[in-house]
């Protein structure tokens, strides 16, 4: 009886002693299993889907960026080409204008020269005609002078004779 109660006391003391800060027991492996389960659950619920979402977004952004860069390069190229074309066209237009001006000048000069020539010719002709008429007039005038002088002479002679 006495020995029995001592035994019980010892058991109680042992049970009390099993507490404490550094009391390792089945909590440890169960906690480990629990943790692994949590990792698995979070993997399917959190890491995988959200990681996928992040990666997809990164891909999407990268793709868009590349596309945008390509488009920008294209636009720049097109702009360059158009500017080139514009410069070419402008140069062409300038040369056309210059040609046209030169041609017009030439034409004007030619026309002027022709007109001057014609005018000269006409003047010469007119002068000739004038000279001719003058000569004719002088001729007829001389004849008349001759006739008149003969008449005057006849008259004078006749008056003298009479």
């Amino acid at each position: 009886m006495v020995s029995n109660s001592i035994w019980w006391l010892a058991v109680e003391a042992a049970e009390e002693a099993s507490g404490g800060l550094f009391d390792l027991d089945a909590t440890l492996p169960l906690m480990a299993i629990q943790f692994i389960l949590l990792a698995v659950v979070l993997n399917t619920l959190f890491y995988k889907p959200l990681g996928q979402a992040i990666d997809e977004r990164d891909d999407y952004i990268r793709k868009n960026k590349v596309e945008a860069a390509e488009r920008l390069a294209k636009v720049e190229q097109t702009t360059k080409a158009y500017q080139q074309e514009l410069a070419d066209t402008r140069r062409q237009a300038q040369s056309v204008i210059a040609e046209a001006q030169a041609a017009a000048q030439k034409l004007a000069a030619q026309t002027l020269a022709e007109a001057q020539q014609e005018a000269q010719a006409q003047r010469e002709q007119v002068q000739q005609e004038l000279d001719e008429q003058k000569r004719l007039a002088f001729e007829s005038l001389e004849q008349q002078v001759d006739g008149l002088s003969r008449e005057i002479l006849d008259k004078l002679l006749s008056s003298v004779a009479s």
Binding site: S18, D23, D25, A26, T27, L30, M31, Q34, L38, V41, L42, L45, F46, P49, L50
Partner: peptide
């Protein structure tokens, strides 16, 4: 035969539940 620390499990279940719930809501 196994002894477990109940208070640790209670709070760890709370933590695990919170994490799972938030993850579920997020994804």
């Amino acid at each position: 035969n196994l002894k477990l620390h109940g208070q640790v499990f209670l709070t760890s279940w709370f933590v695990i539940g919170l994490l799972v719930l938030v993850s579920f809501l997020a994804s």
